[in-house]
C-alpha cells in the first residue's frame, strides 16, 4: 500500500468504515510508516476536539411553524366559524340585522366552547390527588344534604351502582366564575364528573356529546338545570350513563 492510498484509507479506518481485511492492511502500513502514523494521530486528535464541540445548529421555532403551516391542515371548527362571519361581512345582500343575529349565534357557540373547556379543566383538576371529592360517600343520602346551603341549587344525587356506575362523592367546583356542584361517579377505574348548575331555561335540551383534549363531555338541560358529564370513558358508555341518570331522575320525580 502506498502512502497516498493510506492517507485516504486511514480516515475510513478512523470512521470504522473498513472491513477487517482492509483495516489490517492500513494498520500494517501505518505500523511501518512514521508519516502516516503521525497523520493518523493528528486526525484522531482533531476528531476528538471536534466531537467535544457542539457544531450543530437548531432550527428556529418559526421555521418549524412555517413548515407546519405549509402542510395540509385538518379544517378547524374555529376557522369555519370565522369563515361564516367573513361570508356575511362580504355578502352585501344580507341585512345588518340578520348578520347581527349570526354574530349572536357565533358568540354563543364560542361561549359554550369556553364553558366546555372550563368543564374539562375542572375534570382534570379533580383527577389530581386529593381533589376528587369534598364529601366521600357511596350513599346518596349523605352526598345530597352535603350540598345544602353551599349552592343556590340542590344537585340531584342519584345512586347508580346497580346500573354499573358507582357513586363516590360530591364536590364544589367553579365553572364560568360560579360555584357549581360536581357529583362524582366511577365506572371501573374511570372517573365521571357530573357538573350541575342552575339555568333560567327550563326547556329540555337533548344530550349532545363533544370531545375536548381526549375527554368526552355530554351536555344536556332538564328541569332548569344544566348538566355536563365528563369522563375519559367511551362516548357510548358516557351516553349510557346519561340515559341511566335521566331515567332514574325521572323515576325519582314521578315516584
Amino acid at each position: 500500500m502506498t502512502c497516498d492510498e493510506a492517507k485516504i484509507l486511514l480516515h475510513a479506518l478512523l470512521d470504522n468504515e473498513l472491513d477487517a481485511g482492509h483495516a489490517r492492511e492500513v494498520e500494517a502500513h501505518i505500523a511501518g510508516c512514521p508519516a502516516c502514523a503521525a497523520e493518523l494521530a493528528a486526525q484522531r486528535d482533531m476528531k476528538r476536539v471536534l466531537s467535544d464541540a457542539n457544531l450543530r445548529y437548531t432550527a428556529p421555532d418559526r421555521l418549524r411553524a412555517r413548515i407546519e403551516a405549509s402542510l395540509p391542515q385538518p379544517q378547524r371548527q374555529s376557522l369555519s366559524r370565522r369563515s361564516v362571519l367573513r361570508g356575511f361581512a362580504m355578502g352585501s345582500a344580507v341585512s345588518a340585522l340578520a348578520a347581527s343575529g349570526v354574530v349572536a349565534v357565533v358568540l354563543r357557540q364560542d361561549d359554550q366552547q369556553r364553558v366546555l373547556s372550563e368543564v374539562v379543566s375542572a375534570h382534570l383538576r379533580s383527577l389530581q390527588a386529593g381533589h376528587l371529592t369534598d364529601v366521600i360517600s357511596t350513599d346518596q343520602h349523605t352526598v345530597k344534604p352535603w350540598f345544602n346551603g353551599k349552592l343556590d341549587v340542590a344537585p340531584p344525587v342519584i345512586d347508580l351502582t346497580a346500573q354499573g356506575f358507582t357513586l363516590v362523592g360530591g364536590r364544589l367546583d367553579y365553572i364560568d366564575a360560579r360555584a357549581i356542584g360536581a357529583v362524582v361517579y366511577r365506572r371501573r377505574q374511570h372517573v365521571i364528573n357530573l357538573f350541575v348548575s342552575q339555568t333560567s331555561n327550563t326547556e329540555y335540551r337533548a344530550p349532545k356529546t363533544e370531545t375536548m383534549q381526549g375527554f368526552n363531555c355530554r351536555r344536556w338541560g332538564n328541569r332548569g338545570l344544566n348538566f355536563w358529564a365528563v369522563s375519559d370513558i367511551g362516548a357510548d358508555e358516557l351516553a349510557e350513563f346519561v340515559d341511566k341518570f335521566e331515567t332514574a331522575m325521572k323515576a325519582n320525580v314521578e315516584g
Binding site: 503521525a38 482533531m46 476536539v49 464541540a53 457544531l55
Partner: peptide, 13 residues
C-alpha cells in the same frame, strides 16, 4: 504532514 504530531487546542464551537 510533518512527522511530529501537534495537539490542537480546544476551540469554542
Amino acid at each position: 504532514a510533518s512527522p511530529e504530531t501537534e495537539v490542537l487546542r480546544s476551540r469554542d464551537a
